[in-house]
Simulated assay, not measured.
Amino acid sequence: MKKEYKLALFIFITIFVIDQFVKYAFVSFSWDIDGPFMSLKLAYNYGVAFSMFSFLQEYLKYIQLLIVLIATIYLLKNKEVFFKYYIAISILYSAGLSNILDRFTYGAVVDYFYWHYGFEFAIFNIADVMINLAVALIILMQIKEMRKEKKNKEIKF
């Protein structure tokens, strides 16, 4: 097995297990804590980011699974994309599938981080943070690649 696959699998399993453990603990043991800047409060998100599309509550898990299936087919047909972004993809898949599992297990995504210092922000979870991290990594890699291509074009002329 290629080292990229091994590392991707390790990242996937690690993030998935940690996220599911923390969510289970919040649901089962009431880990609610109030803090001056951020609190830990159990909340259920029936939609996606910022509870958008919550009217699709019953169908979101299937829509999201379909999106994951389409993305997987794309990656199988375009392996170079996977190998280029395998770390970000493994983070994205683990976090996304963890949130989808929540929909099947709890009927909604389990959220618990509540930022309230200076302004109130949406309640979110580790998987949400990881999804944003993965997207940021992809964007940064794209910017780096565009700069490199631009620099190579300037050198040729």
Rank of each mutant, 00 (worst) to 15 (best):
N132D: 13
Y86R: 01
S94L: 08
A25V: 05
Y24T: 15
A25H: 02
K23P: 01
H116E: 06
L75C: 05
N152L: 14
M130N: 07
I87C: 09
S39F: 03
A136V: 12
G47E: 12
T72V: 14
L40R: 01
I13M: 12
S90W: 02
D111N: 12
S90F: 03
I33S: 00
Y59F: 08
D128M: 06
L92I: 00
F104E: 05
Y24C: 06
I126S: 00
I15Q: 06
L76V: 12
V17D: 05
I63P: 03
D128H: 11
L92N: 00
K84M: 13
A108E: 09
M146H: 12
K148T: 10
E145D: 13
T72L: 14
T72E: 02
F26P: 01
I33R: 13
K3G: 01
A108C: 08
Y74F: 15
S39K: 05
K153T: 07
S54W: 04
Q20F: 10
V129K: 04
Q142Y: 03
F113G: 10
A88V: 00
A136T: 15
F83G: 01
K2P: 09
V135C: 10
Y46I: 00
G118D: 02
Q57G: 13
Y93R: 04
D111Y: 05
M130E: 03
A88Y: 00
A134G: 04
N78E: 09
Y5C: 07
E145T: 12
M1C: 12
K77V: 00
L69E: 05
V129E: 00
T105W: 13
I126H: 07
V68A: 10
K23T: 06
A43G: 09
V110S: 08
I139G: 06
K148D: 08
G96D: 04
Q142G: 01
Y44P: 02
K148S: 10
S94Q: 07
M146L: 15
E154A: 15
D19P: 05
A134F: 04
Y62H: 11
R147E: 13
Y62R: 11
A8N: 04
V135K: 00
A127H: 04
I100W: 00
F29Y: 15
T14D: 02
V22R: 07
L9M: 11
N125L: 13
D19L: 05
F124I: 11
A71L: 15
A8C: 10
K61D: 02
K151Y: 06
I70H: 01
L56T: 11
N125K: 13
E154D: 14
I91M: 14
I33W: 12
T72H: 05
S94R: 07
V27C: 07
I91W: 02
F55S: 13
A95L: 09
R147P: 00
N99P: 01
V129N: 02
T72Y: 08
E154R: 15
D19A: 05
L40H: 06
L7G: 01
S39D: 07
K84Y: 08
V27K: 07
Y44N: 03
E149M: 11
Y62S: 09
F37N: 10
L60C: 08
T14Q: 02
Q20A: 09
Y112I: 08
